[in-house]
Design a protein around this nucleic acid. Structure first.
Lengths: 144, 144
DNA sequence: TCAAACCTTTTCATTGATGTGAAGGTCAAG
DNA sequence: CTTGACCTTCACATCAATGAAAAGGTTTGA
């Protein structure tokens, strides 16, 4: 597959794909004319890279982590030195911490949105009944 | 609390705290001499900001999201326009997507590490029994 | 009171990482 | 031959973060 197809199928620019290759995140062979030729698996790989970058992981970490999830499920054990293992454990823990942080904040946003919806309903009912002023409503949620 | 204490208690540099204030992420009052004075709640807030930035959220988003989680649990409903709500829902969904991506990859790393550990045990046992060569071991995990 | 040590202020400049634009050239198909 | 996809390379944009200079406030102790 050439770079245009890969770009289209992954929703990234050709420029960015060349950049990822420069950063050692993806690989490609070259056709006789010098054009890059990508494996089918690159599609998933690029999507995964996009997700990890968007989740805040630096390319350096992604470079280390990606080989552990090769899509033709072959796990290279031999290349795992003790240093690599320690490094991966560290990154796994940092990922877990990121997940916790995001979950906390996602839940807080969810709770806020629910409170807003609840308040909107309450204000509408109040409006219906007695034409009350819904402005400046501040709800103190001591319980939550 | 002055900037030095806050820096020490949050593990960030003074410089960075001024930067966050410049970016509208935290606030401070000023003493008579011009020194910044921070509320106690700023400690948690800064830690939360660090977590969100580390998780890949841009300051723009954090600025919007933070007011929804004020620590004296007062939820300001009034300031929630329809635009704000839509924006928050979008960010919540993006957070959820990040979480899924990180979970997938954390699990993949975990599985890899377990496979490595398993392989290490197997190689050790093999060593004990027949002095086998453990180098270049590649395990094809078709089942997983 | 003087001074040294330390904290704070603002401001300008820079770094590092991710990503993009565009120029100038090659290749291949209509 | 023209068009469109691809190549390399240099430069630029953006964002988070940092460095350093220059100036002033605060504290402590001789």
């Amino acid at each position: 597959m050439r770079i245009g197809s890969l770009a289209e199928r992954t929703g990234t620019s050709r420029r960015l794909l060349r950049y990822y290759e420069e950063q050692g995140l993806i690989g490609s062979t070259r056709s006789a004319n010098g054009y890059r030729d990508y494996a089918e698996s690159c599609v998933d790989k690029v999507i995964q890279i996009r997700g990890l970058l968007d989740a805040g992981l630096p390319t350096r970490v992604i470079r280390e982590v990606l080989p552990c999830m090769d899509t033709p499920r072959a796990i290279r054990i031999s290349a795992a030195t003790n240093d690599t293992i320690a490094l991966l454990e560290g990154e796994r823990d940092r990922m877990a911490e990121r997940i916790r942080c995001l979950e906390r904040n996602r839940d807080a946003i969810t709770a806020y949105l629910e409170a807003v919806r609840f308040e909107a309903v309450r204000a509408a009912q109040s409006d219906e009944l007695q034409l009350a002023n819904p402005a400046e409503a501040v709800v103190s949620a001591k319980g939550a």
